[in-house]
């Protein structure tokens, strides 16, 4: 059980790192948000699950579950709010973007 938990945690930390790498490497705000939202969500889920099922002095798997649920619920909301704010603040898409329906609409 401890080994399985540690492997889950390892996978989660790799995803967290890839998410951070995406935030660093992607060309504009919206693409960075894509990497920053998705990879870190699953990364955190795996990381926390791994710790939750591994060795802990008392059972706190429920608390970790609530934390995971909370992150699933709030992460897309905050990135959506940020994307909308960025677009309204006039931050355009990167060069080489295909189209921007919202731009012509506004």
């Amino acid at each position: 059980m401890a080994l399985a938990g540690s492997l889950l945690t390892l996978a989660g930390s790799l995803l967290l790192f890839l998410g951070a790498l995406g935030v660093l490497r992607m060309p504009d705000v919206y693409n960075r948000m894509q990497a920053g939202t998705k990879a870190t969500t699953l990364g955190t889920i795996l990381f926390l699950t791994g710790i939750g099922i591994g060795r802990l002095p008392e059972p706190c798997i429920f608390r970790v579950l609530i934390l995971i649920l909370f992150i699933i619920l709030t992460n897309p909301v905050s990135s959506h709010a940020l994307a909308r704010a960025a677009h309204r603040a006039g931050i355009r898409l990167t060069e080489g973007s295909v189209k921007d329906d919202l731009d012509t609409h506004a």
């Binding site: 890839l18 790498l21 995406g22 990497a35 998705k38 973007s97 295909v98 329906d101 919202l102």
Partner: peptide, 20 residues
């Protein structure tokens, strides 16, 4: 989604054609 993002991020030249 995560495998998709991960596979894009690790390439030397990120393969994207973004748009809204």
């Amino acid at each position: 989604a995560n495998l998709d993002v991960a596979s894009r991020v690790v390439r030397p030249r990120i393969p994207i054609s973004p748009g809204i």
